[in-house]
């Protein structure tokens, strides 16, 4: 694996510095696109993105290109979440209750207290298309119909992907 990621996963502060140096401008560009001109929110969000990267890099698997995308998705959705909070929109993160309603999930997972951040990172381990659908559904609270409209899919296709993604997430979260 990309050695910088290895070092980051070992909580090497020099690696953190290099990651900020290498990806900071990319993260800032994404965050600025969403939160401009709110400087306070931009800085807050950039810090939050790198805190997530630092704390959750251990769960990243992939190469350098994947890492770049992983960071980009974190930045994009953290920024949208911040944007939403600034618009006073409710934060809808009902993945747990949604999972608990699923017949496919074992009780032990339903009973597991899983944090929003963990779910966010777990969702990032799904395939790219499913990942965005899940983030929209469970991180930002979009309805299946709205997601279908955004991606140009039928509602049943979205439901199908959500179903398959949940199975994968079950495996992910089962290991917690």
């Amino acid at each position: 694996m990309y050695s910088l990621i290895n070092q980051l996963q070992k909580k090497d502060e020099q690696a953190l510095r290099e990651v900020i140096n290498k990806y900071g401008g990319y993260v800032k560009a994404i965050v600025v696109k969403v939160l401009q001109p709110n400087q306070t929110a931009i800085e807050e969000c950039i810090n939050d993105v790198f805190l997530t990267i630092w704390q959750k890099s251990i769960q990243f698997t992939g190469d350098e290109i994947d890492f770049n995308k992983w960071i980009g998705v974190i930045a994009k959705y953290k920024a949208i979440d911040t944007y939403r909070s600034l618009q006073n929109k409710p934060k809808t993160v009902e993945l747990l209750s949604s999972i608990s309603n699923s017949k496919d999930l074992p009780e032990r997972i339903v009973e597991q207290k899983v944090q929003k951040e963990q779910l966010f990172i777990s969702i990032l381990n799904l395939s790219k298309n499913d990942q965005e659908i899940f983030l929209l559904k469970y991180y930002l609270g979009y309805s299946n119909g709205e997601i279908a409209e955004i991606f140009g899919l039928s509602k049943s296709a979205v439901e199908n992907r959500l179903y398959r993604g949940k199975l994968k997430l079950t495996e992910e979260l089962g290991g917690i």
């Binding site: 994009k76 929209l136 955004i150």
Partner: peptide
């Protein structure tokens, strides 16, 4: 918000930090 969702992160040009 929907415009932001459509941002393609692979097309983003970094801003100097």
């Amino acid at each position: 918000e929907k415009d932001f969702i459509e941002i393609d992160i692979e097309e983003i040009e970094p801003i100097e930090l």
